[in-house]
Amino acid sequence: MTTEMICAGFGGQGVLTIGKFIAQAAMQEGKNVSWLPSYGPEMRGGTANVSTVVSTEPIASPIVSFPDVLVALNQPSIDKFAPSIRPGGLLIYNTNMCPRGCKREDITKIAVPMNDIASEIGSMIVLNMVATGVVIGKTDIIKYETLEGNLTSFMQEKNPDLLTKNLAAIKRGIEIAKQYT
């Protein structure tokens, strides 16, 4: 069982972190993982993307040509990567920044106003955790508990308020995803 995922958005939206948290948790759950970011000048305020592969088998290529899951935080990411989503695959996108959305009908689409949700929770920087929650709620790529444990040990001492907001964002994402099953 292999899940190939691309997360894409503007630099600063935290797309690399989505991939990293999922890869980290999947590794702890005994899976093989790879995390391959775009890098270079495009990271400075331009678009960023990361390919994450989670598999029960050894991972040959970490390069994802046809993702099972695309997380798109802005419209350019849909334009660039949505055409190559595998038929039957999953697109999770941020409606606040994807005005045109995606026209494909052969995939599952979960449209989430991530900016709105993040600002309701009280911090724009948890936008990416809303997306992460949707991924967890819709796929079985990782368990929520693994991620919660990681975030807790990482943030509880340094920034307990941010931890609370992050977990709230993930849970909101999971709830939204459940509506699509």
Binding site: M27, N32, V33, S34, W35, L36, P37, Y39, I59, P62
Partner: peptide, 8 residues
């Protein structure tokens, strides 16, 4: 790629 990629 090997430099920038993360793997276990």
């Amino acid at each position: 790629m090997l430099g920038q990629m993360m793997e276990p």
